[in-house]
Design a protein around this nucleic acid. Structure first.
Lengths: 345, 345
DNA sequence: CTGTTAGCGCATTCAG
DNA sequence: CTGAATGCGCTAACAG
């Protein structure tokens, strides 16, 4: 079913049908005829033909590292809200933390095409930079700082520093502080949080010893293994700080498996064995995961404005698309330290 | 940059470039020239122009109710694996559990177009049925049983029944059994699980009393509220069975807020106050959420083969697309009851 | 207000 | 093996 056939059936020109579809000048009479034919045939205009012609798709592509993440879903929620309000639809492409796939989907979106792309960044490789430089459509990077595109990112260093100070206060002076980080190729969640964490410890006169550091993937199982290795190979740990709440969930499970209690647990019933406190370990995270809060009652973590970063990213992108805004923007968003089991859901 | 410009720069015809791109006859000499020009210019063929011409995009659209869900991410993982292996890419559209958006994205994909659609179904409305009947591209529905399209779904009724029996065994004879369900408009997670649950209880000589039933949204906060209402308004509850693990997470938090312990908790240290056991409540879920398992040690739940259903769905879809398979399929997948804190990560 | 016309970028005949 | 020509379905001038 094409616009031509509709035109023939309605005894008008294809241009008239096009105008009907796009709200141009058209007489009431022809409008009615066309409407009737379209309804009868269940005709839908071809989006790619239209896009081929207009170069506009009213579509934004969002590239995400994974689907199953509270933080990412908050970002896309923010993006989606803005886009919907401004008449755009949103398509997602998930890369499973695979940098190669990330590039592929970036190209897919560029060619397909969408009007603009938001990349929820993990690592920015040379290929990424090349893409960002040459992209024929506007791109906004969320979650990482880059000068090759407009970006919205979080103060991961500051958050890490705040958490470092908190970790120092959570750990007895004679206890060791452990850190389960993620790859430093991820500047934000990897390098910045860890660097900030070390700075925070230092400002309290503490230090992160290298034997007490592990690297994990962005998955609970991986955090579980890292924590087990910490527990089994090192001694006298007071705090295990994790680079994400998901990793922290794995660490919590590891503690349980080794019969160690979480320091922030507040048993509902008075605990008969108070001396046990001495072997408790605190676990902290980043991201303020609500499912984890629900299940554990809340561990110390950092709340980033993920939804806000999604909103700002979408706004930035649409400003470029619709208004041709040319001035580059690097937007840094703050954070809020969440100390533990306070706050309701 | 178009195929024409490349042709001009390489001193060949656009048809030659097209053949180069698609593996047709071309002399070594011209091949080299074209390759050089393409590399220098960073040219990428326009996907929509190609699609306009070939009617094939090597792209599959997947419509999901939400992004932040372990079960859904497992389904899309399975889909993605199959598609990648067979040379397809995958685009996601998230509807935020909004039936209207679901229809819009279905149409977007149909028109855009992709070669096929997988709908991770929640509720199947009349509009859905109309779409499925008239769709011009193949559609597979995952997670719900429908006769209007090929579908892959889970034995939610059987799972509910198994959980009903387990709940009966978890609850003392004199205790009441509570159920936090989801809307029955969702046939699978709503109606079937609840109906199965009731059947399971009945087979053990128990019954689900209406005052002990609540309806929740698919979110932990909603489960939290439903559980609080149960705890505050009803008495003598032995088990709270929830229609999803996410809801269960909220229920667990509600127990904590009311100072009630989870029945399946195995304190690491001997519990001095054994009598407290009498006021413990068991919480069960569906879905075998790994983050919840990590955080809580594991509650009774049901493991569905989500990844498998994704794999089967994609296979079904590609069979229709590539081989024109015409025989309708309704595929039901089984489940596995997970009793609690056994199993490792 | 309307129809005619001319492409958008590409893949595919069909002669050469 | 190659290039010229044609048209996918649509919209944007333009001339009525």
């Amino acid at each position: 079913m094409t616009i031509k056939e509709i035109a023939r059936l309605a005894n008008v020109s294809s241009a008239a049908v096009s105008r009907y579809l796009n709200g141009g000048y058209i007489s009431e009479e022809k409008r009615a005829q066309i409407k009737k034919v379209i309804e009868e045939t269940g005709y839908h205009p071809s989006a790619q033909a239209r896009t081929l012609r207009t170069k506009r798709a009213s579509l934004i592509g969002v590239v995400v590292p994974k689907i199953n993440s509270e933080s990412i879903s908050r970002v896309t929620e923010g993006i989606g809200n803005v886009l919907a309000a401004r008449g755009y639809q949103m398509l997602l492409a998930s890369t499973d933390n695979n940098a190669k796939k990330e590039i592929e989907y970036l190209h897919l979106f560029e060619k397909y095409p969408v009007d603009g792309i938001i990349l929820i960044g993990t690592m920015i490789t040379a290929e990424h930079r090349r893409f960002l430089k040459n992209a024929r459509i506007p791109v906004v990077v969320t979650g990482q700082n880059t000068k090759y595109a407009n970006c919205v990112y979080h103060d991961d260093y500051g958050a890490g520093k705040a958490m470092g100070k908190l970790a120092a206060s959570l750990s007895g002076k004679h206890k060791h502080i452990a850190y389960i980080g993620v790859t430093r190729e991820d500047k934000a969640a990897g390098a910045s949080r860890e660097d900030g964490f070390r700075a925070g410890l230092k400002s309290e006169g503490r230090e992160l010893e290298e034997e007490y550091v592990r690297i994990s993937a962005f998955r609970a199982e991986s955090g579980y293994e890292a924590a087990l290795s910490l527990l089994d190979e090192e001694t006298d740990i007071g705090v295990i700080s994790c680079a994400t709440d998901t990793i922290a969930a794995g660490a919590i499970r590891a503690l349980r498996d080794r019969g160690i209690r979480l320091a922030q647990d507040q048993p509902a019933l008075p605990d008969a064995d108070a001396s046990a406190d001495s072997c408790r370990i605190a676990v902290t995270g980043f991201g303020d995961n609500q499912l984890l809060k629900a299940a554990t009652g809340g561990i110390p973590t950092v709340h980033f404005g993920y939804k806000t970063s999604g909103i700002r990213s979408a706004e930035l992108l649409l400003d470029v698309i619709e208004r041709g805004e040319k001035i580059p923007v690097e937007m840094k968003l703050g954070f809020r330290l969440v100390r533990g089991s306070e706050g309701s859901m």
